[in-house]
Every structure is written in structure tokens, then in C-alpha cells.
């Protein structure tokens, strides 16, 4: 499902974020990505989500070399990947419901179905009571969960999460991890960047370690 072959990423600033990364994930697999801060976890997820392109090597998603995907097809491709960003990226001027509904609206789903799906997603992250509230009224943890709900609401084939439990207390963090596990059991391939070693050990899933590039 996800394959990296000798992938390197150097930012225009000259910063080498990834060097010679080889990685393979099966469809339906769930794995954790760890490494020190600055090891390139976020960069690796961005390459999968087609938010950036490798400077060297080949990234293959669902059998497609990401470099050779037609530019016009990128949005459709991206809709099959749910991303939970480190800095949640919620829209300030829309309430929780509308934020989560965004991917479904982009897909052109019927309002009736949107309502059902958004409620289901809200239920999973335990935020049903907050659907009318605006992001600035939410705690950091709640924002994070809204971000998760938005990423999974359209049932993407791949779910990527960048430090999704960074702002959550341990109990909630474990809850969220189990929610991801559930999505994985429904068939999604899940890759979570996290440096919460204790937590990911408990999950008993594959752990991929990124070592910081030495220059």
C-alpha cells in the first residue's frame, strides 16, 4: 500500500529531512512512526499525503508512483488519505460540525448522509455535544479530536496522524489510539507518528523508527 524506495528529502533551505528511507506497509496494516524531534516524521507523512515530493527515490502509494500522478488527479488521490495534522488546521469561522463535514461536502455527499456520517465521527471521538461550537471555544485536546473526526469522516483508505495525542491526557490518548485501531480494523491502513513510547508499546503494533540524519 505504501512503499518508500531509497527516498531522500531535502528542503529548499538545504535542510536534509530524510535520507535513504526504505519502508513498506501492507494494505490494512497499522504502524507507528517514531524518532526524535526533527528526525523527519512529519516530512515522511507529507510525502505520503502528496503534500510534498521527494528529492530522491520513489514513493509508491496503492501501486502508483506519486511523482507520476497527474496534477489534476492529486485532489481525488488526497481524498483517499485522511490526515491528522500536528497543528490541527481547523477553520475558525465554522463550527465543529461544518469543519468535519468539509471532506464530505467536497465529495458532494447528500446533506442527509453528511449529517449521519458527521454524527458518527463525532461519536467516535466523543464530541457529540460540541458539534455547534467553534474551534476557539475548544480545548487543545478537543481540537485535536475534531481534526481526527474530519480525517476519518470520509472513511479514507489510508489514515495518517502526526502526533495525534500530543495534547491529550493519557486516558484520552489511549482512547484515541483505540479509535485508530478501530478504523484500522474497518480496513484502513494507519500510520501514526508519535514519540509517546509507553503508549505505542501498549498498542502492540509495528513500530518504525526514524533516525535523525547526521550531517
Amino acid at each position: 500500500m505504501i512503499e518508500f524506495k531509497a527516498v531522500s528529502k531535502q528542503y529548499p533551505t538545504g535542510q536534509l529531512a530524510l535520507y535513504n528511507v526504505n519502508l513498506s506497509m501492507q494494505q490494512g496494516e497499522m504502524a507507528f512512526l517514531t524518532g526524535h524531534s526533527g528526525a523527519g516524521k512529519s516530512t515522511l507523512l507529507k510525502l505520503i499525503a502528496l503534500l510534498d515530493s521527494p528529492s530522491d527515490g520513489i514513493v509508491t502509494i496503492a501501486g502508483q508512483n506519486t511523482q507520476s500522478i497527474n496534477k489534476r488527479k492529486i485532489p481525488a488521490f488526497r481524498r483517499n488519505i485522511g490526515v491528522i495534522f500536528q497543528d490541527h488546521h481547523l477553520l475558525k469561522d465554522r463550527n465543529v460540525f461544518d469543519n468535519i463535514a468539509l471532506p464530505l461536502k467536497i465529495e458532494g455527499m447528500r446533506p442527509h448522509d453528511i449529517k449521519r456520517r458527521v454524527r458518527a465521527a463525532l461519536d467516535k471521538v466523543d464530541l457529540l455535544k460540541k458539534e455547534k461550537e467553534y474551534p476557539q471555544m475548544l480545548s487543545a485536546g478537543e481540537k485535536q479530536r475534531v481534526g481526527i473526526a474530519r480525517a476519518v469522516v470520509n472513511k479514507p483508505s489510508i489514515i495518517l496522524a502526526d502526533e495525534p495525542t500530543g495534547n491529550l491526557d493519557p486516558d484520552l490518548a489511549l482512547d484515541i489510539m483505540h479509535t485508530f485501531k478501530q478504523f484500522n480494523e474497518y480496513g484502513s491502513t494507519v500510520l501514526i507518528a508519535s514519540h509517546d513510547h509507553a503508549l505505542i508499546k501498549d498498542m502492540k503494533k509495528r513500530i518504525i523508527v526514524l533516525r535523525k540524519v547526521k550531517r
Partner: peptide
């Protein structure tokens, strides 16, 4: 900001 987010989640 909204446009960028929409792009991130696959808006054409």
C-alpha cells in the same frame, strides 16, 4: 487559510 485547508483535504 480555508482555501489551504480545503486543498489539504483534497478539494479540487
Amino acid at each position: 487559510e480555508e482555501i489551504d485547508v480545503a486543498k489539504l483535504i483534497g478539494a479540487t
